[in-house]
Write a protein that binds this DNA or RNA. Structure first.
Length: 442
RNA sequence: GCCGAUUUAGCUUAGCUGGUGGAGCGUGGGACUGUUAAUCCCAAGGUCGUGGGUUCGAGCCCCACAAUCGGCGCCA
């Protein structure tokens, strides 16, 4: 294994010491007697100075011929030097190529491919995703992503939620059936899960507080910067909870994520030109709550063509959130716009007790949740009312027959949150191997 | 599914009113003892997405198809 990381060297932890560095060539330039190799590892980059006099002819030739992304092991002294980026460089005394690169097949991700992408994603970069991952932009995104996942786990575990796993092969839909991925299953049909929710509700009477982070699959032919067919879904379910209490947790976990990124990934966010003041605003301020009716009135006041009872599509969301400086909850949607598992508002049965959390800056919906229809009579009535077949949901109905209690939960689109908080142009930028309706490779 | 756009070297692209396709990066060769996306000189690398059509002549005009990108519906 290796014991010295470039980040530590650049931090000044090894000044004057003899170190062994292991990494990959990011850039290389020089002449017949002197060569500058910018070495990269997972923690940073550093300039390594190779002199023919110091390492001998054979090593000098081998190191000089190492193309971009060759892996090297270099031994040398750490020197403080203002001429080097980062303020430190390595005076190489010996070194070798560990894994070379064939000049006939040089590393395909060139400077031109990177700069023209400019945050967007070209077909070429998507086709070479396995190699694009090691560029600084993708590495940074993956580090930010890791902190987001960690923050979600931290939020729920601090509150004694139990992490709980649902199956990924399922027999029925949560959302509309048209977006299910069908898979052959020993002569029968199965589907890839769209949500952990129905199976979480089965465990709710056992665990009371539960959460997960798991992939969900939706066969939507959506071609937008907010959609993937396979996305990471953070979901929670809480017994005895009201819509307001569920929203408080939604706000809590999103603010925790923003705070964690400021604590752990400020440098990475800054390297992506993300405005840290914006992220701080999302961490420090409460998220207002607005009823659906108020949103519709606001939109109508702006001259937008919308009728009561319509769901709010992205074009409406975009207009509505344009003036928001923090995420806003939208609550109490009309019953006709939502599926059967949303609980009808006892105070007015035209509405359901639900909420969406809309992120600002045009990123749109990041959370959907609410109270569940919890009594057996009501769930049967709602299923029949929407002409949903009872049979695939019998296990779900059963859970209401034995001591049903008020409860609720939400689902958070983790990739969408990463995309929003990192300021990405496209959700594809924040997941290592994005899947959409036209791409399952590499 | 609908709407719009794009397709020229490994990558990124220029290409005029239709008249023998240029460049940068990368790769190979050469020069240079402190470079910062090093610089300078040289070389190789193209059936211009595919198939038709118009024309004396098509990268450019027309038709079809394909792939890709962007947007929308749907949603997290």
């Amino acid at each position: 294994m290796k014991t010295t990381y470039i980040g530590a060297v650049q931090s000044g932890d090894h000044d004057g010491e003899q170190v062994t560095l292991k990494g990959w060539v990011k850039r290389s330039r020089g002449n017949n007697n002197l060569r500058f190799i910018v070495l990269r590892d997972s923690t940073g980059t550093i300039q390594c100075v190779v002199k023919r006099d110091a390492v001998g002819d054979d090593a000098f030739t081998a190191l000089s011929e190492a193309l971009i992304e060759s892996s090297l092991e270099l031994v040398g002294e750490v020197k403080v030097d203002e001429r080097a980026q980062g303020g430190h460089e390595i005076g190489v005394s010996s070194g070798q190529v560990i894994g070379g690169v064939n000049p006939e097949r040089p590393f395909p991700i060139t400077e031109s491919a990177m700069t023209s992408a400019d945050g967007g994603e070209t077909e070429f970069l998507l086709d070479h995703r396995h190699l694009y991952l090691r560029t600084s932009r993708m590495t940074t995104m993956l580090q930010i992503r890791s902190s987001v996942f960690g923050a979600i786990h931290g939020y729920f575990r601090d509150l004694d939620f139990v992490e709980y796993q649902a199956p990924n092969f399922v027999a029925g839909a949560v959302e509309g059936g048209s977006t299910l991925f069908e898979v052959p299953y020993f002569g029968k049909k199965a589907y890839l899960t769209q949500s952990w929710q129905l199976y979480a509700e089965a465990a709710m009477p056992a665990l009371e507080r539960l959460y997960t982070i798991a992939p969900s699959f939706r066969a939507e032919k959506s071609r937008t910067r907010r959609h993937l067919t396979e996305f990471w879904h953070a979901e929670m379910e809480l017994a005895w909870a009201t819509n307001d209490e569920i929203m408080s947790h939604g706000e809590g976990v999103v603010r925790r994520i923003a705070k964690t990124l400021l604590d752990e990934r400020s440098d990475e966010l800054a390297s992506l030109d993300r405005d840290l003041d914006l992220v701080a605003r999302y961490a420090d301020n409460p998220y207002p709550r607005m009823r659906y009716d108020e949103a519709v009135e606001t939109l109508q006041g702006m001259g937008i063509d919308i009728e009561w009872g319509q769901d709010l599509d992205y074009s409406k969301e975009k207009v509505l959130t344009a003036d928001f400086d923090v995420p806003h909850f939208l609550t109490h949607y009309p019953k006709v716009a939502k599926p059967f598992y949303h609980r009808v508002d006892p105070e007015d049965d035209a509405y359901v007790l639900c909420h969406d959390l809309l992120a600002p800056e045009g990123y749109g919906e990041i959370i959907g949740g609410g109270e569940r229809t919890w009594s057996e009579e009501e769930i049967l009535a709602r299923i029949d009312e929407e002409n949903v077949p009872r049979e695939p949901y019998q296990f779900y109905i059963d859970t209401r027959a034995y001591g049903g209690v008020p409860h609720g939960g939400f689902g958070l689109g983790v990739d969408r949150v990463v995309s929003w908080l990192s300021g990405a142009d496209h959700i594809r930028e924040v997941i290592p191997f994005p899947r959409d309706s036209r791409r399952v490779t590499p």
